[in-house]
Amino acid sequence: MMKHPDETIDQGRRDWFGLAAAATAAVAAPGVILHLASANTAPEAQPASSAVRWGLLIDTNKCTSGCRDCVDACDRENGLDLQTKPPTEAPTAWADQKAVWVRKVKLADGLTGRVTNLPLMCQHCEHPPCVDVCPTGASFKRADGIVMVDRHICIGCRYCMMACPYQARSFIHQPMHDQLTRVPRGKGCVESCNLCVSRRDHGLPSTACADACTAAGKGAIVFGDLKDPASPISLALKAMPSRQLREDLALNTGVRYKGV
């Protein structure tokens, strides 16, 4: 039998990320020698594990119109607020071209008129169309279920954006002048929500959007391990009906919604 190709690749990449993280830390912080010495057990040195599957549960009943705390938190966490509009570009064009990882959507049911608010981001599909179509394998799924783009081999063909059923991906249309070390970003590549992957790799508990939602007192976003039956997200999923967006496509998304 062949080894599952995805997993071998992911392992390698994950190691690489670990290494890169360690190397960056070594350059950045002086007290790091200690840190490196314990690198074997540090979370960032561990490969992504298929024993977990990260996901989100969004309770649309708790999400309110006009609130965009999750969006702002995501922008800050992932350096999206550092994007600058090219000076001569029209604001309307910029709105369609700047990178957006999570967006708020407000819906009205066609029959009943019931209004629903929700945040929409990459759904971290188990069978991600964006990964299937990517010619170079830059769009990949980690063992822990996170779908993301390897910025070193993305050629910017945008085929993954054509393939994503949720329009969750963004292309960097403009030159970047400023960015965060944990979220490198360059003109000409594609990116999308990666469930705050650097937090995952440092063993932190949650995502920026979930934290912000909780801080705002709404608690509409729960982050956690879908494979752990005792995790809050699994318990909540068990207790109440939820669904996947576009479940007809059978992508088995890692992001679930209540109340749509």
């Binding site: 957006v100 819906l107 009205a108 049911d109 066609g110 629903t116 329009q167 967006l245």
Partner: peptide, 17 residues
């Protein structure tokens, strides 16, 4: 537009869905 929410009308979106 992509049909992410069949049967629903999109009133507002941070991204012209």
């Amino acid at each position: 537009p992509l049909q992410i929410f069949p049967g629903q009308t999109i009133l507002d979106s941070g991204f012209a869905d």
